[in-house]
Amino acid sequence: MNPTWYLILAAVLFIIGAVGVLVRRNAIVVFMCVELMLNAANLTLVTFSRINGTLDGQIMAFFVMVVAAAEVVVGLAILMSIFRTRRSASVDDANLLKY
């Protein structure tokens, strides 16, 4: 199978993620879109690793997963505390930090 398709799939996933971050208001969905973009990047890394026949990209992908897991923990904790105080998970409602 041609590895190019994996790359195209990764690009599509990334675009879906980016658009989701920009257009969705629900913080949970935005969060999932961020995860989508991270995993698109992982897919790209693994694909290039396969193309080049080295393991560097695959190792990198593991690191990204670990960091993403840690980020999810922190992000969800913030989300929980925002929801408790504001009774809303909309990112547009959390706009106190402005001019």
């Binding site: 920009l22 208001r25 106190l96 930090l97 001019y99």
Partner: peptide, 17 residues
């Protein structure tokens, strides 16, 4: 220039993109 800081996370995200 201060008016650029709207407080909307999504506009910041667009800027980053």
């Amino acid at each position: 220039l201060r008016r650029l800081q709207t407080g909307f996370v999504r506009s910041y995200a667009l800027t980053m993109l």
